[in-house]
């Protein structure tokens, strides 16, 4: 008889179950109709099985989004967990699509599934990548724009993980401000 180590057949469980969503911009449909759930996973191995199977973000058409959210939270402002929340926003230049986009998004996913923000990971709702001709965006969404301690911890760790230079400023904005903004920029609650 052969003894097989459990390491070889037991998958590594994640702290949370996650859902990957895809948004494709079809102007003949409503915003919600363009949003589709791709799949859910709750182990490291199933995360990679999904990630290895889908298109890299840099190959998506303009107007598309991927969203990774905790199971039970929908990737929209209206969800109860997002209503009083906000996001750390990373805006990328057109040149960065080739150099940084896929690397930044994978790093963002690894931060989420690996619970990189320790106990402040409970404040994380999910992350979104927007593919846009005028400039791509990546954001981590958190649940409470008033939880300064969690937000600043998440922002510091995230910036370090992405390798964003200290002199580059990233901003945290509430969804309420983003939804009601009049111009093209939203004021930062934290930097």
């Amino acid at each position: 008889q052969k003894v097989v180590s459990p390491e070889s057949y037991i998958k590594h469980p994640l702290q949370n179950k996650w859902a990957l969503w895809f948004f494709k911009n079809d102007k003949s449909k409503t915003w919600q109709a363009n949003l589709r759930l791709i799949s859910k996973f709750d182990t490291v191995e199933d995360f990679w099985a999904l990630y290895n199977h889908i298109q890299l973000s840099s190959n998506l058409m303009s107007g598309c989004d991927y969203s990774l959210f905790k199971d039970g939270i929908e990737p929209m402002w209206e969800d109860e967990q997002n209503r009083r929340g906000g996001r750390w926003l990373i805006t990328l230049s057109k040149q960065q699509r080739k150099a940084d986009l896929d690397r930044f998004w994978l790093e963002t996913l690894l931060c989420l599934v690996g619970e990189a923000f320790d106990d402040h990971s409970d404040d994380v709702c999910g992350a979104v990548i927007n593919i846009r001709a005028k400039g791509d965006k990546i954001a981590i969404w958190t649940t409470d724009y008033e939880n300064k301690e969690a937000i600043t911890h998440i922002g510091r760790v995230y910036k370090e993980r992405l390798g964003v230079p200290p002199k580059v400023i990233i901003g945290y904005q509430s969804h309420a401000d983003t939804a009601t903004k009049s111009g093209s920029t939203t004021k930062n609650k934290f930097v």
Binding site: V44, L110, G114, E115, A116
Partner: peptide, 18 residues
């Protein structure tokens, strides 16, 4: 309870394992 945390090195190593 305890939180299940994985660092990036471990997660990346899992990508290539069978």
């Amino acid at each position: 309870g305890t939180r299940i945390i994985y660092d990036r090195k471990f997660l990346l190593e899992c990508r290539s394992s069978p």
